[in-house]
Amino acid sequence: MTVALLAMSHSPLLEYGDPGPDIKAEVEAAVDAARSFVHDYDPDLVINLGPDHYNGFFYQLMPPFCIGYDAVSIGDFGSQAGPLNVPKDVAEGLAEFVIDRGIDIAISLKMEVDHGAVQPMELIYGDISSKPFVPVFINSVAPPFTPLKRVRQLGEAIGGYLKTLDRKVLLIASGGLSHDPPVPRLATASEAQRRMLIGADGRQTPEARAARQQRIFDAAEAFARGEANIKDLAPEWDRQLMKILASGDLSPIDAWDPHEMTEIAGNSSHEVRTWIAAYAALGAIGPYTVNYSYYRPIREYIAGFGITTATLDN
């Protein structure tokens, strides 16, 4: 058994936003570094910790955590659609192990995932089904949120399970860092938005999805001009989080309050829960070193954009 980690921001605006040629080239170079790391490591199995943006999980039933025994990508924002290569025996074993360790986790026999789960696979491999892939959903957009201590404990339980596998595993954490895209909030939603958040009408029509995506594009352009009514990026908060994760001691994060996270770093800053769980999983196996780290706040992507890779010291 050996385990490595890739944690990276995702953004549907990577293909649509224009931060200028220098920043775009810088981000592409960071993605190239991550791609080289993963291809050199060549894992047998990917454990993907990702959020959802009211595409597969809705307020009709919103678990804090869920493991998919089977999964399909819906293809939002032009991401690759279709089935993922989920090894059911590994997914079942992971769920049972985590539950036995006192972490209450849901399961899905047909999980639907969006760009938040599959974008790293597309960027790294060009094909979301190229590697065996176990999706672990972590609620990151729908309050109320479970305490971060529980997220860390979930990650530690996942790491415990990975110790039992005779496989080369890559943990992918997808999401964050600070950002506040115009996703409807239940507390202020219109009736139509509320129905969408609940999932009352099923999957969105192509027209409704196109309109939803256009709102993101318009918000990114306005944000870059300093005109959008969304929270600003929080680079100091982002860097503090990355420093804690790199230290190997994640316990300071236990005290972080979800409401304060929202106020400081935006409503979707909770996607860093995927990073916390992944680093906790790696740390449960042994000491690790972050061997690559990139960060830049990019308004055109509405994201504090970060990429890190890490390997075990032994």
Score class of each variant (00 low, 15 high):
D232S: 12
S79N: 13
W237P: 12
D313P: 01
R225S: 13
A29W: 12
L165P: 06
G160P: 09
L241S: 02
S247F: 12
S130N: 13
N229S: 10
G68A: 06
T274D: 08
L171G: 02
H10N: 07
A222H: 06
A277K: 01
D257W: 04
Y161D: 06
P83T: 08
S178N: 09
A95Q: 09
A224M: 08
E15Y: 14
P287K: 10
I302Q: 00
N55M: 12
F58G: 15
P21V: 07
L154E: 02
Y125F: 15
I253F: 11
A34C: 10
V98R: 03
E28P: 11
S108R: 07
G20S: 08
R101A: 09
R35V: 13
M261A: 10
A173C: 15
H179M: 09
T262S: 11
P64H: 11
L241W: 00
A157T: 10
Y41Q: 03
H115N: 01
V141P: 08
I298A: 06
V72A: 10
L45F: 09
T308M: 14
I103V: 15
A277M: 00
A224P: 06
I285S: 01
R215P: 06
Y161G: 12
S108A: 12
Y288D: 11
Q213K: 01
F305C: 00
P51T: 14
L162M: 15
I264V: 15
T205A: 03
Y41L: 11
K110H: 15
I47P: 03
P297D: 11
H179R: 04
T164P: 13
L282Y: 12
S11E: 09
G50W: 00
V272W: 05
D232P: 07
H10C: 09
R150K: 15
N314P: 08
Y59F: 13
T146W: 10
G226L: 05
G248C: 04
V118M: 00
G20F: 02
S11C: 10
K88T: 10
A7R: 01
F133E: 10
E263K: 13
F57E: 11
E28G: 14
